[in-house]
Design a protein around this nucleic acid. Sequence first.
DNA 1: TATTGACCTTCCAATAATGGGAAGGTGGAA
DNA 2: TTCCACCTTCCCATTATTGGAAGGTCAATA
Lengths: 128, 128
Amino acid sequence: MTIGELAKTSGVNAKLIRHYESIGLIPKAARTESGYRFYKESDAQFLRFIKRARSLGFSIKEIKTLIGLWRNKSRASKEVKALAKNHIKELEKKIKEMQEMVDNLQSLARSCHGDSRPECPIIKSLEE
Amino acid sequence: MTIGELAKTSGVNAKLIRHYESIGLIPKAARTESGYRFYKESDAQFLRFIKRARSLGFSIKEIKTLIGLWRNKSRASKEVKALAKNHIKELEKKIKEMQEMVDNLQSLARSCHGDSRPECPIIKSLEE
DNA sequence: TATTGACCTTCCAATAATGGGAAGGTGGAA
DNA sequence: TTCCACCTTCCCATTATTGGAAGGTCAATA
């Protein structure tokens, strides 16, 4: 499989596959005589694994750990669960921060007339 | 005021003040004969404005717009309100995405025994 | 006066993840 | 042979912030 075909079957675009290789997230691909990378089916599965983990918000660094856990068939499930729980905590922390921003802004926006007059509590709150 | 003093009174560190100058977010500072930047009180207020806006999650680009609105004493408050509303929408969109990640992970984590056995639905879900 | 330490300067680089483009080589089909 | 689609590497941009290196300046102290 060429890198373009792998991109199609894995859903990860070729540019990104090369990048993942360059940072050591995936192993260096085998090459044809002319230097083209070539892949096998299982490489697509690997990339899909990465893509799913990304869609759950795991960072590349966390995914490296996840890959290790994935490959280690005898590791305890509590190790994986701990990683997930920790990740959930981080996500929840960010969500909370953003929700606080929204709440603050909502209350400012509510108190702003939003008409053609220049008086604006939103701006005023930034001045203080 | 030197940049270090400004950093203290504004709460924005010196490195970042120079950066803000380099990207044109704040005007170029006046210089002493020896090349040191120097500032006045109102510069600290300006930086605090920026810092507050950042803490509400506005991007540097949005802040540039906000500064324009701030300076324009005759602009309509509805312009500011529109910017804020738009920003709220973006924040809420991100929050929703992250909340979906959390929900998915929570349900996976719940179904994972989290003991010493290797079977793990979290990993399994990434394999599919 | 010489030294010292705290502060200032600029420039370069790194972070995280992805995308875009340029310049050039390769493969296969018409 | 020519042509197009694909491949290669390398560099750059994004966003906001921080870090360091190498070197100049200021003020106080020995």
